[in-house]
Design a binder for these strands. Structure first.
Length: 501
RNA sequence: GGGCCGGUAGCUCAGGUGGUAGAGCAUGUGCCUUUUAAGCACAGGGUCGCGGGUUCGAGUCCCGCCCGGCUCACCA
């Protein structure tokens, strides 16, 4: 018999022993008086004398350590990522509860009642007087000292990662704080949250390849959305002048430390403003999100100090000049010159070439939070032209730590111009650009009912969370990142086999 | 998809040049009523990712495949 089987069998047998003592192996409701983090916060600095008169507590948690010494023992209970020690003495808990204590495995969930005290070595602990059994683990916990290191198991069995590695829990708590911060800030400014279709008959709002799915009754193919943009702007037409959505987008592309096929975006639209207005709003949103997540706008990421207290601003052409590495740094005139641009890229138009050069030579240099504005019209089919330079549009992206984390523009609200843009995208599609935009006729129809001038922006929640939590990989900020399915697990067979016992 | 690295006990990891698979934690038994990576003694536990090949003999060398990580390409 393998060890794993043996451990499982041992624990299944132990269920009978727990029952024989009069406990339920999968217990019921437990009325607690305190939670462990609260006890540590409230009494962690109290001396032994200050713990008198007795502070009585009833707490529950998962058993993480156990040191049995004959007729007494110590153990740690973990709850919400924090641990409190308990001292279980036979004289204090009685024969039956002490037998239960002896039977406990690491990972079992128990409740205890007793009073707070400090041990001889000074650790705040519960002097236990009563034990209750709440839930039985059948499988062994990760090793107590190193925790769970195997990244594959960490991602596949995130519950184990959360139990064994308290810092992982902190990352996801911080992620929740970031989202709450952005939501609160937008609500405070009069934005309302909406939900728009994830399954769309036409996909749009970004340049990406979609996932396809099928609806049986209607017998139509649908695309998982690559962006909510076109629906949110329909709502602006309809008079929802400040709307936002925080939800998933799906892009059928490669995986990397910066890309997961499903990822979370905040998108918001504000009527009667433009990209200049959004630049200021972005700076405020990010600074406050940093403070809410990390307590400061000074963020350390990968050994670099990032300051979210303000955003540097460069036009795309300025950025190419400013951040050019090595020989041949161009002048501002050159980055506006068709010949120079086409000579430095194999793209077909000056605008695509400029974007290509920017992405290749500049993007990864943008460590400090930076706004890059004024994009070529070819790569921005939904943004409004600059009045004095129609080859460019009023668009900016936000970069930090070499990653794009935001994208915003003055929304194109001229249906005639939008029609021409879609036609330009269709011709790019015909030339082989699979990611060029589809024609969305209802969207053009919506614009034909007049959309107020508006600014719109998307912020990548996963990447922002990476930066604000010091995470190297996007998989470390997504609870269940996409992985290939694992092989046979064989849990059901084992349980079925030992059900006879 | 390409390149590099990894997969050995439930967990964390060792295993020059090929020669009967190891440690710590965890598990079992015994001792131990303020320990804390508790301690002491003894014991059990392995499809060395999978499949071929070379060899008298493969965890180790060769080939193919699976899973993961990093990286490049693609992308946000």
């Amino acid at each position: 018999m393998s060890l794993e089987d043996e451990l499982l069998k041992q624990r299944l047998c132990r269920i009978r022993e727990i029952e024989a003592l009069g406990f339920r192996p999968y217990g019921a409701r437990f009325e607690f008086t305190h939670e462990i983090p609260g006890i540590l916060a409230g009494y962690g600095s109290k001396t032994a004398e200050e713990l008198a008169p007795e502070v009585r507590v009833r707490i529950a948690g998962r058993l993480m350590t156990k040191r049995l010494m004959g007729k007494a023992g110590f153990a740690h209970l973990q709850q919400n990522g924090e641990r409190l020690q308990m001292y279980v003495k036979k004289d204090a808990v009685g024969e039956r509860d002490f037998q239960l204590f002896q039977l406990l495995d690491m990972g079992d969930i128990v409740g205890v009642e007793g009073y707070l005290f400090r041990t001889r070595t000074g650790e705040l602990s519960v002097h236990v007087e009563k034990l209750e059994f709440l839930s039985k683990t059948l499988l062994s916990m990760p090793e107590k000292f190193h925790g769970l290191e195997d990244v594959e198991i960490r991602y596949r069995q995130r519950y184990l990662d959360l139990i064994a590695n308290p810092e992982v829990r902190k990352v996801f708590v911080t992620r929740a704080r970031i989202i709450a911060s952005l939501r609160r800030q937008l609500e405070d400014r009069g934005f309302i949250e909406v939900e728009t279709p994830m399954m769309q008959p036409l996909y749009g709002g970004a340049a990406a390849r979609p996932f396809v799915t099928h609806h049986n009754t209607l017998d139509i193919d649908l695309y998982l959305r690559i962006a909510p943009e076109l629906y949110l702007k329909r709502l602006v037409v309809g008079g929802l002048e400040r709307v936002y959505e925080i939800n998933r987008n799906f892009r059928n592309e490669g995986l990397s430390t910066h890309h997961n096929p499903e990822f979370t975006m905040l998108e918001f639209y504000q009527a009667y403003t433009d990209y200049r207005g959004l630049m200021d709003l972005s700076a405020e949103l990010l600074a406050q999100a940093a403070v809410d997540a990390a307590g400061t706008t000074q963020i350390e990421y990968e050994g670099q100090k990032l300051d979210f207290g303000g955003l540097q601003r460069y036009s795309m052409r300025e950025a190419v000049v400013q951040f050019w590495q090595g020989d041949g740094r161009p002048s501002l005139e050159q980055v506006s010159d068709r010949g120079w641009l086409l000579h430095h890229s194999d793209k077909l138009t000056p605008g695509e070439a400029l974007t290509d050069i920017f992405e290749r030579r500049v993007e990864e240099q943008l460590i400090q939070p930076t706004l890059i504005y004024d994009y070529p019209v070819e790569t921005s089919p939904l943004s409004k032209n600059k009045p004095d330079d129609p080859a460019f549009v009023e668009r900016f992206e936000i970069y930090a730590a070499g990653m794009e984390i935001g994208n915003a523009y003055t929304e194109l609200n001229d249906p005639q111009e939008q029609r021409r843009r879609f036609e330009m995208q269709l011709s790019m599609r015909e030339r082989g650009n699979e990611e060029a935009h589809q024609m969305d006729e209802d969207y053009v129809r919506a614009l034909s009912y007049a959309m107020p001038p508006a600014g719109g922006e998307g912020i990548g929640i996963d990447r922002l969370t990476m930066i604000l939590t010091g995470s190297r990989s996007i998989r470390d900020v997504i609870l269940f990142p996409l992985l290939r399915p694992e092989g046979p697990i064989d849990m059901i067979n084992l349980l079925r086999e030992y059900d006879k016992l």
